[in-house]
Amino acid sequence: MITQSLIRAQNVHFSMPVTTRLGQSLRANPMAALRRLSGTGKTRKFRPLIRGISFDLRGGDRLGLIGQNGAGKTTLLRLLAGVLMPTAGQLEVQGTTQNLLNVSMGMQDDATGIENIYLRGYSAGLSGEEIKCRIPEIVEFAQLDSVIEDPVRTYSSGMRLRLAFAVATSVKPEILLLDEWISAGDRFFVERSKERLLSHIEASEILVFASHSPQTLEELCSRGLVLKNGTVVFDGDIGSALEFYESDDYQAIDPPARGGNRKGAKRAQ
């Protein structure tokens, strides 16, 4: 059976409960704390971060997420990665996924490069034997032969990035989610990783890539999704998406402002 990897988002919403720890403190807000204790204060506030995003991705699609800070790129990636669950709408993700979403990429600072390869490999669902086979190739691509036995905390951010990228792409995931990963790499690494990505993206693979670098986006992606305040304001091929993002239209367009709190409705059960 051929499993076709796909991502299908239909009107996906995500709202984050606003839990400022300060507001929970007894000292800062004694009345609220008492109300919470007595169970009468059931007003939870939510901040919508993603408001009704829809798109379909099939194998071979390379999607670039474009948008200013706070537009919802990272939140969308986290939803796709399964870290966050949508609060409304439908999100369907099929296929093995690899994510490079945050800077530390879940590395164990005191452990050596090799040990981190094992940890990441195991977390990607590989067996010890499979990881072992891949180590030479990973180390070679990351160009870390001399330091791979050193603790990762001694690495520069570029070295960490190379290692994480090499491990994540060695598994040949069906879906690869990347968030701003390029920023710490030098141009040689960027070149090599582009090559590697493009060679990986065959008919069955999906790439979702958030970045501020128009050049990289243009080279890697085929389709662009421009976000603003958690909504899609443009969906089209990457060239025109970038054009739209840089034009005045992007500034002019005005989806409902972010942060419109609302009282939590009754939990749908």
């Binding site: 669950m85 709408g89 439908q90 999100l91 993700v93 093995t96």
Partner: peptide, 13 residues
Amino acid sequence: PGEGERSVVAPKK
């Protein structure tokens, strides 16, 4: 959810 083989379906709005 998470890395690895999966299929996530969130319920309909």
